[in-house]
Measured scan of single mutants.
Amino acid sequence: EVTIKANLIFANGSTQTAEFKGTFEKATSEAYAYADTLKKDNGEYTVDVADKGYTLNIKFAG
């Protein structure tokens, strides 16, 4: 089991951190699915992958 950390960075400057656990593939998939649910209210997003994929910096356009 691994932990994927998602740093969520919103257009208004606020930030939030979420963690997803499971296999690497499952946790990564859940992180992207979570970002997709936030897209409606926060706009499109870009992802900067860090720490060999264990950290995702997800920035929303607003």
Rank of each mutant, 00 (worst) to 15 (best):
I58P: 00
Y54Q: 07
N42Y: 15
F60M: 02
L38M: 13
G43V: 02
A33W: 06
Y32G: 02
K26G: 15
K21H: 15
Y32N: 03
V47C: 04
G53V: 02
A31G: 03
G22F: 02
S14R: 15
N7K: 12
D36K: 04
Y34A: 04
I58Y: 06
Q16W: 08
E25L: 05
N57G: 04
K26S: 15
T28H: 09
G53Y: 03
G13A: 06
K39D: 02
D36V: 04
K59R: 14
I4S: 00
A35T: 03
D41E: 10
Y45A: 02
K5N: 13
K26Y: 12
K26T: 14
T15F: 13
Y54A: 07
L56C: 01
D48W: 08
T37L: 09
G62E: 09
T17L: 12
D51C: 04
A11C: 05
D51L: 04
V2P: 04
T46G: 06
K40C: 06
I58F: 14
G43R: 02
K39N: 04
E19Y: 13
T46W: 06
A18E: 11
F10H: 04
A31M: 05
E44A: 08
G62C: 07
N12P: 04
T37H: 11
E19Q: 11
E30I: 07
T37E: 11
N12T: 11
F24D: 02
A27N: 01
E25M: 06
A6E: 03
I4A: 01
G62V: 08
Y45W: 12
T55V: 13
D48E: 15
K26P: 02
Y45T: 02
F24M: 14
F10R: 03
N57D: 09
F24A: 07
E19N: 12
E1H: 08
F20H: 02
D36G: 04
K21S: 15
F60D: 00
G62S: 12
T17E: 11
T3S: 12
V2G: 05
I9Q: 11
I4F: 02
A61R: 09
A33L: 11
D41I: 12
S14L: 11
L38D: 01
A27M: 02
E30F: 08
D36A: 07
N12H: 10
A33N: 10
V2D: 06
N42G: 06
K39Y: 06
N57F: 08
G43P: 01
K39Q: 09
F24Q: 07
K21L: 14
T15D: 08
K52Q: 14
E44I: 10
G43N: 03
A6D: 01
L8G: 01
N42D: 06
T37P: 02
N7M: 09
K52E: 14
F20T: 01
L38I: 09
K26N: 15
T46H: 08
N7E: 07
A11L: 10
D36L: 04
E1Q: 07
E1S: 07
T46Y: 12
E19G: 08
K5A: 09
K5T: 13
K52V: 08
F10C: 04
A61W: 08
N12A: 06
L8M: 13
D51F: 03
T37F: 09
S14C: 05
K5I: 14
A50H: 15
A6T: 09
V47P: 02
A18D: 06
D41Y: 07
N12S: 12
S29I: 11
I4R: 01
A33F: 11
D51N: 10
G43C: 03
D36N: 11
Y34P: 00
E30M: 14
T3A: 08
Y54L: 15
T37D: 09
F20Q: 01
T23E: 15
K40H: 14
Y32H: 08
T23M: 09
G13K: 13
D48C: 06
K26V: 14
Y45R: 01
T37Q: 13
A11H: 15
I58S: 00
L8H: 02
T23Q: 14
D36E: 15
D48G: 13
N12Y: 07
T15E: 08
Y32M: 14
V47N: 02
A50W: 10
K52W: 08
S14I: 13
T15P: 07
I4W: 02
I9M: 10
E25G: 06
A18I: 15
I58K: 00
V47A: 07
A33R: 13
T55A: 06
Y45V: 02
D51A: 05
